[in-house]
Design a protein around this nucleic acid. Structure first.
Lengths: 110, 110
DNA sequence: ATGCGAGTTGACGACTTCTGCAATTCGGGA
DNA sequence: TCCCGAATTGCAGAAGTCGTCAACTCGCAT
């Protein structure tokens, strides 16, 4: 098994290793959204959000296009949902009530 | 939705964002293994492997115990397989033949 | 052409992660 | 008890990541 393959897998997961980026992907699961909306929901500086969006674009999980005055972002594949779901499941197994976050996690799965 | 929850999710994925750590988790899917074996299969310095194992231990996805002269590692939850599988699927969608890694990825899924 | 709102890019300092080396711990044999 | 293999820890330098500020680009309306 080649080292580059593992490198690619690692980069795939690294792409997800940031709160803002996860949040963005979760929001995009509901469909394409303008940066404007993301900015309204995420509480982060515009330039910072742009940086994180650039990371997502570089790895290819999202695409961007212009719609009039707004820039829109969309998932490039719906498989992202599986990844996030799997992450949630493990988090649940691993936290195993280690602290209050578990309750909040479960609520989200309603 | 709280910031700490997203932080926890991000840390979950960060834990996976390293070639050696991914490799270890893949190997452990087949069952518990001594450090000795991992070391034989991964081509990494013992101290480096130990560091990466420590990361996995800290986040709680693996547990370690002693068996005679050897230290064994095992997955703490089988859910890890889902995460890795989801990662593979996205990698496939995203790479979309961008380079030769895709063929290797598919072969692995046999 | 000028101005404006919407995003992006570049660059800097603060901080974290990674790796290899050396030193250390820990359990069994001899 | 002493030693040896197995694994971990501490540490230092190199490399990467994060957040913020300022400057910039782009499309559109005036």
């Amino acid at each position: 098994m080649s080292v580059p393959l593992y490198q690619a897998k690692a980069e795939m997961f690294r792409m997800l290793s940031h709160p803002v980026r996860i949040r963005v992907l979760e929001l995009l699961q509901a469909g394409p959204r303008p940066v404007r909306d993301l900015l309204a929901e995420i509480d982060v500086e515009p330039s910072n959000l742009s940086q994180q969006l650039a990371v997502l674009r570089r790895t290819g999980v999202v695409v961007s296009f212009r719609d009039g005055p707004l820039v829109m972002y969309a998932l490039s594949t719906p498989d992202v949902a599986d990844l996030l779901a799997a992450g949630r499941r493990i988090l649940g197994a691993v936290l195993a009530d280690r602290d209050g976050l578990l309750a909040e996690l479960n609520q989200e799965r309603r």
